[in-house]
Design a binder for these strands. Structure first.
Length: 825
RNA sequence: GCAGGGGUUCCAGAGUGGUCAAAUGGGCGGGACUCAAAAUCCCGUGGUUCAGGCCUUCGAGAGUUCGAGCCUCUCCCCCUGCACCA
């Protein structure tokens, strides 16, 4: 009975044994093939483990245990993404130092992680707030600087007033901060550190092809990178060439104005004296608008006073500054064709700008004076001089070639991906290892002087805390030994997670970032597991870093993770996210206390495919608990005997399917098959120890504690955690047994239906059933005891050609294949 | 708008050409046990009833096929992501 089993006790017993024997420590040297499973490391918050953690890390642990039992030498490390703003903010709130806060959080986390039975190699644990770790962030930065990948520039950047820091493009979600859904991003023009990720845009795009990732993840990254083909057209403004990117050079003759981004850093080069005040007024208004809803922002603009010359028509068209043009995409300036682009059309109507039709089609005769909206379909060029009559699709190439020929433009490619802004004006991050020297300017530190550690003594509350420690800020220039000032910005926390997976391969190396041979042995990650929210942030950065480190010759692969699995979310019973404010949170630790870690693990994966959301139900949780209890008590005092042939068939077949299902994360399907097999097992007279071992090995990946206990009770040597699966014995798999089951089930069903009808009509006097089958099906029904038990009938089965059969009603003739005839009395 | 993923029986969720009225779990109904309840166990759970049948179901419609939940097309709906990217 489930109640009598003290799961908690078993959990702790084996968790301690595993730890004591260090059985999950993995050696770099092994005869076994390597396998690297990685869960994205957690951000250690003071709140501890939540159900989402319990779910995602259990998925990884199951996969790891599965791979171990398959005979792989599995690297399964864990660490803490412990630098970052939330720790800083939480510390400020609790009036402690981020370092103390983080230390406490990690200790708490670790305890809880162990209670889940996750089989990490704790000897490799790392935390990013450790100077021995972030030292290498700084080292990588210096490498990047040397290669020109790290650089400083003044640019319009996203600033979150709540974070009091700038953000990367990836961290802006719908114009808001990724951490503060209620906070609008402000655009500031600041000089900041960037990583030149756009240099790697093509490898990032092409690398996707060879990855075994969910389609969704690949598409998301593709869209984020946003490659588009087009033409760069040169417009002359005030005797200066300005490049404008367009995907529609076929409409070039219809350009009636240009729009430059209001955030463009050269905007005022164009603004005339007369228009200056109007433009400034417009910009002021823009700022207040950005604090409201960005979504339905109307397209607005203001005339700059400048005119551009259309390279083909030589016409002069006005240049406007507009709020809808993205400053740092392409050249930050667009050509506007109101007749064939709806946005441009609305803008032209609003400001009374000329409209010129250049594409016509036979059915509709467009007239610029009467048209109600832009015509965006295809057609034939008109008003386009020598290109008149061309199909507009064809004209895209023709006109581009002509521009190229005349040196007025060229074919080009644009991407949405921007360079990665890594500066943060906050304390709890990796210090950027440069100084500002009055004489030498920006000077990087020497690698031997790393790490630049965070000073503990700083004041929080106003601006960047690092600026408050003068003795830290004031330093000497490594070049001229003169006075210098340290960079007080720290790095985006995402730099840490961009290469942590490499450090796990050689976590204690104090001489170099890692031993390349170790990293090349373990990497790339064979199976990476994490949430979908990381696809356009972390997973872009980690791929970028990998490519950079590859090009630096440090590693011999250029993709971090070949396979990636995205898990779903654990939702509360009401279908909402679990949250304190909703009061619907179920705590993993409470659940373990009540049901044991195995039952929780089993429950979390038995509901649905793990890439789907799990909706928590107490009854489901209880059902898993019940099942685990039944299995445990079944085996607890079992006496082994022999397997029936049928059972040998079943266990081998299940094992075979199990390999396939678990390999493909169909954990839920596996749990069902284990339930079914358990039912069969209960009806067997005896089973062998070998089969029992097979069964608990399968169950072990989901429920490591009770299976460890049973393994031990069975008298096996060593740990089940370190055992390996037997090969599937294909010769024992005989589909005959499945047919037999099918035949029994069919007959049982038929009898049931007949009895139901009869019993309604007559009284219950039926006690015997005579069954007539076609001869070659006779042996499928040789054991009908289960049906006899169920129906309370005595059953006799005959072959139809059996001369000695009892068949008073002469039913035997009705027997068909898979459909025996039946006589009841 | 664009892209991706989906719509399965009361719910969750398996299932991708025949043995599918469709696994499994939950819920619900019935039964056993009990003085009773809880727990546990067994049975049932689209309709209908004629002895194992018949009819209707897997978002809607059309098609391919001897045969479709599963393949093709069109449409509807839901979720997710990007969103003024020129």
């Amino acid at each position: 009975m489930a109640e009598f089993v003290n799961f908690k006790e078993i959990d702790v017993k084996w968790q301690e044994a595993w730890e004591k024997e260090k059985i999950f420590q993995v050696s770099d040297q092994s005869k076994k093939p390597k396998y690297y499973v990685l869960d994205m490391f957690p951000y250690p918050s003071g709140a501890g483990l939540h159900m989402g953690h319990a779910f995602t890390y259990t998925l990884g642990d199951i996969y790891t245990r599965f791979k171990r039992l398959q005979g792989f030498n599995v690297l399964y490390p864990i660490g803490y993404d412990s630098l970052g703003l939330p720790a800083e903010n939480a510390a400020i709130k609790n009036n402690t130092h981020p370092e103390d806060y983080t230390k406490k959080s990690i200790a708490n986390f670790m305890k809880q992680q162990k209670a889940m039975g996750w089989s990490y190699d704790w000897s490799r644990a790392l935390k990013t707030s450790d100077p021995e770790f972030y030292k290498w962030d700084q080292w990588i930065f210096l490498q990047m600087l040397e290669k020109g990948i790290a650089y400083r520039k003044k640019a319009p950047v996203n600033y979150c007033p709540k974070c009091e820091s700038v953000l990367a493009n990836e961290q802006v979600v719908n114009g808001k901060c990724w951490r503060h859904e209620d906070t609008d991003i402000e655009i500031k023009h600041l000089e900041q550190w960037f990583y030149n990720i756009t240099k790697y845009v093509e490898p990032l795009l092409q690398g996707l092809e060879k990855l075994d990732w969910p389609e969704r993840a690949k598409v998301l990254q593709k869209n984020w990178i946003g490659k588009s083909f087009g033409t760069e057209v040169i417009f002359n403004i005030n005797n200066e060439d300005w490049k404008v990117f367009t995907t529609r050079p076929d409409t070039l003759y219809g350009v009636t104005f240009l729009v430059i981004s209001a955030q463009h850093n050269r905007l005022f080069d164009l603004v005339t004296k007369e228009q200056k005040s109007k433009v400034e007024e417009f910009l002021k208004k823009l700022k207040s608008v950005s604090e409201k809803e960005l979504e339905n922002l109307e397209k607005e603009g203001v005339f700059t006073g400048a005119y551009a010359i259309n390279p083909l028509t030589k016409e002069k068209v006005p240049v406007y500054a507009g709020n809808f043009v993205v400053a740092d995409y392409a050249s930050g300036m667009v050509m506007a064709v109101p007749s064939h682009d709806q946005r441009d059309f609305e803008f032209a109507k609003k400001y009374g700008i000329n409209i010129k039709v250049v594409i016509q089609n036979k059915e509709n005769n467009l007239d610029s004076k009467t048209m109600q909206r832009a015509y965006t379909e295809n057609g034939i060029l008109v008003n386009s001089e020598k290109f008149n009559g061309l199909n507009n699709r064809a004209a895209i190439d023709t006109i581009t070639e002509y521009l190229q020929h005349m040196s007025l433009g060229k074919k080009t490619v644009q991407y949405k991906l921007r360079d990665w802004l890594i500066s943060r004006q906050r304390y709890w991050g990796t210090p950027i290892p440069v100084v500002y020297c009055d004489k030498c300017g920006i000077v990087p530190l020497n690698a031997k002087d790393l790490p630049v550690t965070l000073p503990k003594d700083v004041k929080f509350g106003q601006g960047n805390p690092l600026k408050t420690n003068d003795s830290w800020v004031n330093t000497t220039c490594p070049k001229c030994k003169g006075k210098a000032r340290r960079e007080t910005d720290t790095m985006d926390t995402f730099v840490n997670s961009s290469w942590y997976y490499l450090r796990y391969c050689d976590p204690k190396n104090s001489k170099e970032i890692f031993d390349s041979s170790k990293v090349n042995h373990w990497c790339p990650i064979d199976q990476y597991i994490g949430g979908p929210e990381h696809i356009t942030m972390h997973l872009i950065y980690i791929r970028f870093y990998t490519k950079v480190l590859h090009d630096l010759g440090l590693i011999n692969f250029d993709e971090p993770a070949l396979r990636y699995f995205t898990q779903g979310i654990v939702k509360a019973a009401d279908g909402e996210r679990m949250s304190k404010s909703r009061g619907n949170v179920i705590e993993p630790l409470d659940t373990i206390e009540k049901f044991g870690a195995d039952a929780l693990r089993f429950y979390l994966i038995s509901n649905a495919s793990p890439d789907k959301d799990v909706i928590w139900t107490d009854s489901g949780m209880q059902s898993s608990h019940k099942f685990i209890g039944k299995v445990y008590s079944f085996f607890e005092n079992i006496r082994f005997g022999k397997d029936s042939e049928k059972f040998e068939h079943k266990i081998n077949k299940t094992l075979k399917e199990f390999f396939d299902d678990v390999q493909n994360f169909k954990y839920n399907v596996s749990t069902i098959k284990l339930r079914a097999l358990f039912e069969t097992m209960q009806n067997e007279k005896t089973i062998s120890k070998e089969s029992a071992n097979k069964y608990i090995q399968m169950l072990h990946v989901f429920c490591p504690h009770i299976t460890e206990e049973l393994w031990n009770r069975f008298g096996n040597k060593g740990f089940i955690s370190q055992s390996t699966f037997d090969k599937v014995n294909e010769s024992k798999i005989n589909l005959k047994f499945d047919k037999e089951d099918q035949a029994i089930e069919n007959l049982s069903e038929d009898l049931g239906k007949i009895l139901k009808v009869i019993q309604d009509k007559r009284d219950n006097s039926i006690s015997k059933a005579f069954v007539y089958v076609i001869p070659n099906e006779l042996e499928l029904l040789k054991d009908v005891s289960s049906i006899e038990k169920k129906t309370n009938l005595t059953i006799k089965v005959f072959a139809v050609n059996d001369k000695a059969k009892y068949d008073p009603e002469n039913k035997a003739g009705k027997a068909k294949s898979n459909k025996p005839a039946i006589h009841l009395e």
